[in-house]
Design a protein around this nucleic acid. Structure first.
Lengths: 364, 364
DNA sequence: TTGTAGGCGTTATCAT
DNA sequence: ATGATAACGCCTACAA
């Protein structure tokens, strides 16, 4: 299976890792015949250097492959040009898209992403100490933070943008989010309006605030409308949770529900596939299925899923904007915290019946 | 659409970003009544400190929220505990999985990922200068590097592991890869053995070495077998390329080919959906479709794609292992470059006919 | 075991 | 415009 080819005879280039003394600005200064500070200035954008020195220095630098040492620079400037991005569910299909966009947006502002990943969102606490260590200029966190943890960011004056987490304590904390509770309400409402009465819900994991809000939004709306309590199961945001979830809901109810609301698209796709391919149900004829996120596969022809889109590109851009603003704010300046809320967008796919079977709307 | 809620009256906590003097080891030393070096030693794993001083120092540190400054440390230790990971196609579904695994493996070795993303693989050159800047301990690069670029890593003695790129110059370069050329040959061979004669190929982008190798592997094998030249189109590794690709191939040939080999799974899925839902073709009855990677959706019930899996988890682990070894090697030590090659694994899905229609094998 | 002192590579301040 | 010089926060001999 694994062919470990230790190159022995074939590959001559065994690199001797000698202690290569680093090239510093002193070396460049010496070669260029100027002072070390002159070299430093040449690498600072708006500095005052004469054309001739600049040319000599740059030529020497190029000859020596000199590049300023960011660690040393950050020591004095207090700017590392690194931004921490904390993300939990890389498997989630949704987060890679967000991360790609964040990385892009952060790069164009001259900074880089220091990536912190974790298996479970609750592990975020253990990462914090590392974040402090690395002296990042700010952090974008896509995980639930406790009040205490937020407080620590404030104490350390570390600019923070919370991504897609609706925190209990909203004030004083910058965040970019999509209104998940509203999304849940909206979806439940649309389905109920079409006459669906018995719902099933395949919710996301209990430790995910996003999952919780979507679930509450849906259940609250159903209750308001006086519909029967939905059958409820919990999943892990993955495909298998969708297939198992549907079976379990059917077992709970003793029949196929009218509609299933899934905590995200991947579970909805699992649910859909189970319904069609395992249970031979007609979707949306016998059963409506809907999800959240509008990840790429939800739009594929085999699915064409009814779902709610989060404007992920805009959200990432907003997060990067917000953070950049916080970082660039002169010290001592007062910055008021913002919450940028994006509205979810209803995607009218083909997996949910959205018109009433009998036009009982005439009776109203 | 975007509701920017500037909290005005509601939110009192407008944080004044005062110049918070950082807590240093001197502060801790003062509070604990010891020297600064004592504090330093307390944060170094195998140092010699008495129990009592250690306790006092740690108590003071905790009280002040002291955390060592990694930038300052790296200045003298020459270890930043950061690893650069360079990745191009985050949209590719394959790379997020790799990145998640890499991040995990690197984290468990006490290091963090500094992420470098780019739109096109050819842009890697522009990132290099940044990599040097940040003083990373090593780099894992999932992009094609020129000889010159590799040479620059060597000159700077920066440990490098090339991920999933078969370089022309293999010696002296540490790399982890899946044999893409062989994978292409294998797939073409299996399909040909089942009697498919007229092939179509939806290849990946021309600037992707992985795409090129898969394509060459397939075309070489078909030529060896004396089969007619395949219809060839180029895609961007995305879903739309798969749907367009199939139509274009049919236009080129004037008929539906026997089989289409797609440069990756996402294009294969696009091709498959187009065949089934737009052209109403029976797959694999009238047309066989296959891809590469075995990304998660390829395994979903609606697709059950015939494909070749790359053992991505193992590859990521191997890359992290390799890099860690290079970094930990004592300076001056000679390290021989390795290439760890992983074999692709054939996934016998349901989108390709793999048995001959007429048992003409009896005739042989 | 502990403290003293020098240095890591840069930027910033201040003369010149 | 340029060059000394003092930080930045930490690690590490070396001496005690």
């Amino acid at each position: 299976m694994t062919k470990t080819k230790t190159p022995s005879a074939v590959s001559p280039a065994a690199q001797p890792r000698a202690a290569a003394r680093r090239v510093t600005s002193y070396d460049v200064a010496m070669l260029a015949g100027v002072s070390q500070s002159a070299v430093s200035r040449c690498f600072k954008p708006g500095a005052s250097v004469s054309k001739s020195t600049y040319a000599r220095v740059m030529k020497a630098a190029a000859g020596l492959d000199y590049i300023p040492n960011a660690a040393a620079r950050s020591l004095i400037t207090r700017r590392s040009n690194m931004v921490a991005v904390v993300i939990s569910q890389m498997a989630n299909l949704y987060y890679p898209e967000a991360l790609a966009e964040l990385s892009h947006q952060i790069a164009r502002r001259g900074k880089r992403v220091l990536l912190f990943t974790m298996q479970h969102e609750a592990d975020v606490g253990r990462l914090l100490a590392d974040i402090w260590q690395y002296q990042v200029d700010g952090a974008i966190v896509a995980a639930a933070l406790t009040e205490e943890q937020i407080g620590e960011f404030e104490r350390r004056r570390l600019p923070l943008v919370v991504f897609n987490r609706n925190l209990r304590r909203a004030d004083g904390v910058n965040s970019v989010l999509c209104d998940q509770y509203e999304a849940g309400r909206l979806l439940a409402g649309r389905l109920a309006a079409a006459g669906h009465r018995q719902f099933g819900i395949i919710a996301g994991p209990a430790d995910s605030p996003v999952a919780t809000e979507r679930r509450h939004g849906a259940t609250d709306r159903l209750r308001e409308l006086g519909l029967p309590a939905p059958a409820m199961v919990t999943g892990q945001f993955d495909y298998a949770s969708g297939t198992h979830g549907l079976r379990e809901i059917i077992a709970q109810l003793g029949r196929v529900p009218d509609a299933v609301i899934c905590g995200n698209d991947v579970m909805a796709i699992g649910c859909l596939d189970c319904a069609r391919h395992e249970l031979s149900l007609d979707v949306p004829g016998q059963l409506s299925v809907a999800g959240f996120d509008a990840v790429e596969p939800s739009n594929w022809l085999s699915y064409n899923l009814t779902t709610l889109r989060q404007p992920i590109g805009h959200m990432a851009q907003a997060a990067a904007d917000l953070l950049a603003g916080l970082i660039d704010a002169r010290e001592g300046e007062t910055v008021t915290a913002q919450t940028r809320t994006f509205a979810p967008q209803f995607i009218d796919g083909a997996t949910a019946r959205l018109v009433a079977l009998k036009p009982d709307s005439l009776a109203a």
